[in-house]
Amino acid sequence: MSNPVTNVLISGVGGQGILLASEVLSEVLMLAGHDVKKNEIHGMSQRGGSVVSHIRFGEKVYSSIIPEGEADVLLGFELLETYRYLPLVRQGGSVLANNLQIFPSPVTLGKETYPENIPAKIAEAFSDFTLVDGLKLAAEAGNERTVNIVLVGALSKRVAVDDHCWQQTLRKMVPPKYLEENLRAFNLGRQL
């Protein structure tokens, strides 16, 4: 393509902090001088539903929706929601998944079953696959609620942007009270 655009997809369950993660990423990309578009659906998709955020960047971005099957990176906050969006990822794309299961209501009610061995199934199709123990690293950073920033840290390795852009954006977007633990969380994710 004459106009290379990088496509990042972030998926998970409503309430997991996906919106903040995608906000941080798009601010970082703007700071780094890229054209950026970001898209997600609010409303019904919150309240425990499946949530997906599209972030696209490059010299010039048109559609804010990633063309089907062209995501370069998929970051999933939950295993089923990572697995669900694999068809949007291109061959040779990168997949990062938080090692967490949240059972959706049809599974709890016994109407449907949660797929087994999701990490193995992802690894079989995508050689660049990273499984992240988000909760463990967040606890290590000092607050279990920083899982989303741990995952942003893990994602940062797949996005060619200078470290200072990340640091500067986190300082701008995270309340000062929680900044230190979030910076620790980011760095733990980035080291993966």
Partner: peptide, 20 residues
Amino acid sequence: AVTSYYSHKEMLPGRPPSMC
């Protein structure tokens, strides 16, 4: 039809929104 590299070989459970 637009084709994808990856397609599922099993039905996935839905994740409808629910009351908090």
